[in-house]
Computed example of a mutant assay.
Amino acid sequence: MTSSTIRVVWGAASAPTAMASYDAALAEAGVENYNLVSVSSVIPADVDVEAVGTAPDLGPAGERLTVVEARATSAGPGRVSAALAWSQSVDDGPGLFYETAGETDREDVERRVREGLAAGQELRDWEFTDPRVAVESSQAESGTYTTALVLAVYGESEPIL
Score class of each variant (00 low, 15 high):
residue 48 D to G: 07
residue 71 R to K: 14
residue 66 T to G: 07
residue 40 S to N: 12
residue 145 Y to T: 02
residue 120 G to I: 04
residue 107 E to G: 10
residue 129 T to F: 02
residue 35 N to C: 11
residue 50 E to H: 12
residue 100 T to F: 01
residue 43 I to W: 01
residue 87 S to V: 05
residue 158 E to Y: 07
residue 11 G to V: 02
residue 50 E to I: 13
residue 146 T to N: 11
residue 55 A to K: 01
residue 139 Q to Y: 13
residue 84 L to E: 03
residue 129 T to H: 07
residue 81 S to A: 15
residue 24 A to L: 14
residue 132 R to W: 04
residue 100 T to S: 05
residue 6 I to R: 00
residue 136 E to M: 13
residue 133 V to C: 04
residue 43 I to K: 01
residue 25 A to W: 05
residue 64 R to Q: 08
residue 42 V to F: 13
residue 82 A to F: 03
residue 53 G to L: 10
residue 48 D to F: 10
residue 26 L to F: 06
residue 151 L to K: 02
residue 122 E to K: 15
residue 3 S to F: 15
residue 146 T to Y: 12
residue 27 A to N: 11
residue 116 G to D: 01
residue 4 S to Q: 13
residue 106 R to Q: 13
residue 159 P to F: 05
residue 114 R to N: 08
residue 25 A to D: 05
residue 159 P to H: 06
residue 113 V to E: 00
residue 71 R to P: 01
residue 31 V to Y: 00
residue 137 S to Q: 14
residue 132 R to E: 15
residue 32 E to C: 04
residue 2 T to A: 12
residue 97 F to V: 08
residue 144 T to W: 09
residue 79 R to D: 09
residue 75 A to H: 14
residue 72 A to K: 01
residue 45 A to F: 10
residue 85 A to I: 06
residue 19 M to F: 12
residue 14 S to R: 09
residue 82 A to C: 12
residue 58 L to D: 06
residue 15 A to I: 13
residue 56 P to M: 10
residue 85 A to H: 04
residue 105 D to A: 10
residue 150 V to C: 01
residue 2 T to I: 13
residue 99 E to T: 15
residue 73 T to A: 06
residue 62 G to L: 01
residue 81 S to I: 06
residue 126 W to T: 07
residue 81 S to G: 07
residue 26 L to P: 00
residue 23 D to H: 12
residue 49 V to M: 10
residue 57 D to N: 14
residue 91 D to R: 09
residue 119 A to K: 12
residue 136 E to S: 13
